[in-house]
Structures are given as C-alpha cells and as structure tokens.
Amino acid sequence: MVALAPSLGTILDVRRRAAWREPSALPGFRGAFAFTLVYAGLIILLPLAALVARPWEHSPADLVHGILQPRTLAALRLSFVAALAAAVVNTAAGLVIAWVLNRYDFPGRRVVDALVDLPFALPTAVAGIALATLYGPNGWIGSLLAPLGVKVAFTPLGVFVALLAVGLPFVVRAVQPVLEDLDTALEEAAQTLGANTLQTFARVILPALSPALLTGFSLAFARGAGEYGSVIFIAGNMPGVSEIGPLVIVTRLEAYDYAGAAAVGLTMLAISLAVLIATNWAQVRLARRGAP
C-alpha cells in the first residue's frame, strides 16, 4: 500500500510533466521507461491483479454479507480510525521534530536523526512486543498509568500508540528535505515586512511545507491502516473492541476462507486508495497555490 502513494502522485501530478518526454541531461529514456513499467507492474500491479482475479468461491452477496458482519465492520473501523488519529498526531509531531533537526544544532542531533528511522528498521513484531512490555500492567509506563485508571495495552488505545511509533518516520522523512530547501531568507523577508512569528509560520512556512506534510500524512495513514505485526501484540484482539482489520483477514485465512479474506483485503485497499487519491488531489492543489 505504501508503494502506491508515489505512483499515484506521479499519475496525478501531470502539471510538470505535460510533455510526453522530459528533456534530461542523461540519455536512455526508452530503456528507463520500459524498466519502470515492467518493474512497477511486476512488483505492484501483478500481486494486486492476483488478489482480484482469483477464483471467487462465494457469491458476491455472500462476500458483501461477510464484510457487513458487525465484527468485521468494527475491526475495519478501528484500523482506519486509529490510523487516521495516529497520522494526524504524527503530522504535527513530525513537523516539530523535522524543524528541530533541521533548524537547530545541538549535541546528539545526529543520534536523534538516526533514531527517527528506527521504526523503519525494527521488525514490526519486535516493536509490538516492546510496546506491550512497556505499556502492559506491570510495564514501566503501564504500571504508572494503572493507578490513574488508564489502560493502554490490550485496548484500542494500544493500537493508536503502536501506530504512532510506526508512522512517525514517514512524516519526518517527507518534511525534512523540503525544509532543508526552504530558504530562511523567506522567513526573514516576511518578518522584515512586519509579519509576526505566527503569521510567518502560517503564511510562509506552512504553505511551503504542506505538500510534504500531506505526503507524510498519507503514507503514515496507509501504513497504519494495514499494519499487523506491531499492533497485534498490544491490541488485545477482542472481537468488536480491539480487533484490527488485518486480523480479520488472518482469521478468515485460518478458516481456509480465501475468498472472504481477499474480500476484506480489497475493501481495505479500496478505502486506503480513496484516502490516498484524496490527499494526492489536495497535494496537487496545494502545490499549485503554494508554489512561490
């Protein structure tokens, strides 16, 4: 699902590629273009096609009925709502972190910078077990929260916390390069012209960063909605309460219900795709308006 975002961006971002063939300093357009088509087809489209063009053992009505089961609906809702909430929080947090890493020099900056990537590098199951240990009733954080009556591990809140960890690097890494390219002279000019800090941020910095922020948001969201490995250990997996969408897919597979599993998978894919298209559309609009 992650890989869809850049490709969609490429499709929708026609503005700068109006010409069929962009002149480039390097030769070899034909070869590179053919490679792009074959590779993207093999890695992205073929598995997707296999998911759709499979022997559907049930009637369409049965499949729809399977998706409309309260247990399935609750799981899909949890996956998408938690992913949305985590992506929103990560977009704000990621902006602050990227800002600090980019605009300030402090001892250990490189260490913090490397730390941001850790959720990428860590096997998701390891992250999930670590979080469950931390937030479990006898864990460091869990034991502090327990007297306050706050339960994180094995509740829907745990899903949100796991997705926070999973999604952060997407936002930071999307915003950082744009921030690096952003000329500080723009901010200085704005302030010279009488803008206060808030105005500078809202009118100068944010518009320039918003396409990158949206990219980070949609990547974090899409990844979060489909996340299984890190969530499964902290969710509690109670049907109708803390059960996530991908677990419903696994559950169907365990019952050898391949068609039912594929139907839920396609539903999740369709929702994620809709969100990605919407954010890409917004991104194009923002880029057009925000372009200095």
Binding site: G66, Q69, P70, R71, M238, P239, G240, V241, R252, A255, D257, G260
Partner: peptide, 10 residues
C-alpha cells in the same frame, strides 16, 4: 463466521 464463538461477542 457467525459460529458460536462469534456470538459470544455480539
């Protein structure tokens, strides 16, 4: 799907 285990949580 819809078996006795499912019903526990409905």
């Amino acid at each position: 799907d819809g078996g006795t285990f499912d019903k526990i949580y409905q």
